[in-house]
């Protein structure tokens, strides 16, 4: 039994290595390499010049990271404001034509966003929305909103109306009911939706490119010329920064949520003691 377990463990370990770690090895090596020749498995010269270019020279990386995150957070904030009431309505109210509303809101999950963006591009241009962050935010809304609605719906599904009624009986107004009863319950779902929304927004290339037209410089726009045939070392360094940015944004969200719960818990236990 023990032996079998060891075997299985080893198998899983190798599998993991092949599947997840191996693909990143050349990426990391290449980012630190200088003119890495075939057939050397390791670069003959290690160099920090690609990282220096990406992080410290005049390459605009930090600004692009800032723009990317700004857009992702605005998009996500708007999404949450739009999605929570919509999810509430879809889950807790009798609706005529529910299927139609669901079909409308969830359509962008199936139909790719660039189809709509290429269609609306010239209209955006005429209204002066291209080349603006606002325009790019608008373009990022439809591919992200459905996921936030979906996530908020999952949370509403498990929220009992009784709790809210109890709170009402205790004299809580609609705002305070929402803040103290509904919101804490929805938060994990919203956070999950927000993570998806941030992730999707951060990784958009084509629609940012079309609506931003070179003036809204997000990280994917900056790195694309390098990964499609530019210097491999710089392309690799940028790819790692890009992936790192996505992972970091999600981790921060995760941490913030945990801290919120800790605070809540602390406040609750304090309340009991008093």
């Amino acid at each position: 039994m023990k032996r079998q377990r060891l075997l299985a463990n080893t198998f899983l370990f190798i599998f993991l290595l092949m599947f997840i770690v191996l693909p990143f090895v050349p990426l990391v090596l290449s980012s630190f390499s200088y003119n890495w020749k075939w057939p050397n498995v390791l670069p003959e010269i290690f160099s920090l010049s690609a990282w220096k270019y990406v992080l410290f020279d005049n390459s605009g990386t930090w600004q692009a990271i800032g723009t990317s995150l700004l857009i992702a957070f605005i998009v996500t904030a708007i999404n949450i404001i739009l999605a929570v009431p919509a999810a509430n309505a879809l889950v807790r109210y009798p609706l005529k034509g529910r299927w139609l509303f669901e079909a409308i809101i969830f359509a962008p999950i199936v139909i790719p966003a660039f189809v709509a963006v290429l269609g609306i591009h010239l209209t955006f241009l005429r209204f002066g929305l291209t080349e603006t962050i606002f325009g790019v935010v608008l373009a990022h809304l439809s591919p992200t909103l459905p996921y936030v609605v979906r996530a908020a719906m999952t949370s509403y599904n498990t929220l009992s109306i009784d709790w809210e009624d109890q709170a009402r009986m205790l004299g809580a107004g609609p705002l305070s009911r929402f803040y103290h009863v509904v919101l804490p319950h929805l938060l994990p779902g919203i956070a999950a939706g927000a993570s998806l929304s941030i992730l999707i927004s951060l990784s958009q290339y084509l629609i940012t490119f079309i609506i931003g037209s070179g003036q809204v410089m997000t990280l994917p726009i900056l790195l694309f010329p390098f990964i499609s045939g530019g210097d491999p070392a710089i392309a690799s360094a940028y790819s790692l920064v890009f992936a790192g940015m996505a992972v970091a944004a999600l981790l921060i969200l995760d941490l913030a949520l945990k801290r919120y719960y800790k605070k809540k818990q602390a406040a609750a236990s304090k309340g009991v003691r008093e």
Partner: peptide, 11 residues
């Protein structure tokens, strides 16, 4: 609001 956003921007 959510439906209008999708209708306007997407459809």
């Amino acid at each position: 609001p959510a439906a209008a956003t999708i209708v306007l921007l997407f459809f």
